[in-house]
Design a protein around this nucleic acid. Sequence first.
RNA 1: AAAAUAGACUAUCCUAUCGCUUUUUAAAGAGGAAAGUCCGAACAACAUAGAGCAGCGUGCUUCCUAACAGGAAGGGGAAUCUUCGGAUUCUACAGCAAGUGCCACAGAAAAUUACCGCCUUCGGGUAAGGGUGAAAAGGUGGGGUAAGAGCCCACCGCUGAUUUGGUGACAAAACAGGCAUAGGUAAACCUCACGCGUUGCAAGAUCAAAUAGGCUAGCUGCCGCAAGGCAAAAGGGUGGCUCGUCCGAUGCUAGUGGGUAGAUUGCUACAGAUAAACAGUGAUGUUUGUCGAAGAUAAAUGAUAGGACGGUGGGUAACCACUGACAGAAUUCGGCUUAUCGGUUUAUUUUCUCU
RNA 2: GGCGCUGUAGUUCAACGGAUAGAAUAGGCGUUUCCUAAACGCUAGAUGCGGGUUCGAUUCCCGCCGGGGCCA
Length: 134
Amino acid sequence: MKFTFSKSERLTHIKIIDSLFEKDSRIVEERFVYPFRVLYIRENTFEPGLEQPQILISVPKRRFSKAVDRNTLKRRIREAYRLNKPHFQVEGKLKLPDVLAFVYIGSTIEPSDKIHKKMAAILDKFTLPNETAN
RNA sequence: AAAAUAGACUAUCCUAUCGCUUUUUAAAGAGGAAAGUCCGAACAACAUAGAGCAGCGUGCUUCCUAACAGGAAGGGGAAUCUUCGGAUUCUACAGCAAGUGCCACAGAAAAUUACCGCCUUCGGGUAAGGGUGAAAAGGUGGGGUAAGAGCCCACCGCUGAUUUGGUGACAAAACAGGCAUAGGUAAACCUCACGCGUUGCAAGAUCAAAUAGGCUAGCUGCCGCAAGGCAAAAGGGUGGCUCGUCCGAUGCUAGUGGGUAGAUUGCUACAGAUAAACAGUGAUGUUUGUCGAAGAUAAAUGAUAGGACGGUGGGUAACCACUGACAGAAUUCGGCUUAUCGGUUUAUUUUCUCU
RNA sequence: GGCGCUGUAGUUCAACGGAUAGAAUAGGCGUUUCCUAAACGCUAGAUGCGGGUUCGAUUCCCGCCGGGGCCA
């Protein structure tokens, strides 16, 4: 089991990012798990055929005005995703969406173990087999 | 030895596991402020960036510097202390002796002043005294006078030119002028001196899908042998205005490239840091030695665990709990400003102890 | 990353360097009404922070702190 997170797993395509935050979009779905707001697109039509999903992490400047705080939060979220992701990419689980955006909506800097638990809960919701109907 | 003030330096450390970015594949990987963007430059583009005006900035002197509104050393001024010798701290500090404006309330009067008063030969003279005010026409004392007044004199102040000292700001000396220089304000307009082309790496360069259809060159009616002029100068560019300068309708024909997404580059090695010696009061400079090397791009430099070290609180103590200053590169440097738990060190002052 | 602008009552705006900082609206109290609304009267409430220039600063200058805008 590899816990890698290379640059190709980052979402850098501007058009996809624009379409993620476009209002009243058809392809974008949304899900709230405190302290995250998760936006996702199931099929990446701009760059099809990628093995790993591409993710984006965002911490609003309005709540955390200092760059140091935003950096630590983004690093904690990234590590939580990196360490949890391989546990949900095994046989018997559903495929993760192609494009994911994690927007931090909490107002305090949460510790790492809490972020890890919430990230596991999010990924569990995406990959549970009986969730296909919705 | 302790405390205070000022300056300089430093900016928690180690191990393990799992990772990220760069690339020379076995190494490197946040700061003193990386911050604010307040100044100054490098670098780059715009080719007329030319002339005048306007505008903006700076404002005691000399020096340092690539440059600066930064720094150093001085000069003048102010405040505090004083053993009256001076010391410390601060200082946007050119010009109201060119013009214009403004000066509330109080006060007779706020700037070519004249209400009360004083004197009077009743025409007038005068600014001594008058409660105000931030500011009231050099100050104090004496003489003088009808009453007064630099009207006259002494000392102090002011102004002017001279000499001496200093690179200079300026200082000192002696001389002259009764002082109409008439109060304050230039972080009021303004004047004077000096400086400033504009835009900022989202500058710019190279490669280059899809979509769209752009760009360049030539031709055009009239006058003239021709050069050229008129139609055709409205309009636009050149930071604002004027001059100057460049482009300049529509249509037809011919040719073909421009450039968005994206990628590469600019992109990290020098106005570097530091030690010693020398020069200099100093900022700083020179020589020699040593050392250093982030380069990401929806943006890496980390996460977790353990230990050490430091801090705060509790406890007689062992120890326990909490916690790790301010803060995160974005083209690069030099400064300034602001934030900052601590530690090291230098200088000065004060207090205490010992000799 | 770079470059402009801006800050006054709870809100929207005023105010030549002269102070008791004004107006509308919102708030509170009262009058009127059987009660409420409207109307009328009274009332509390502010110059973002720190320095400087000036006799005097919301205004002028400097430094911080906010807010908002432009540049692909």
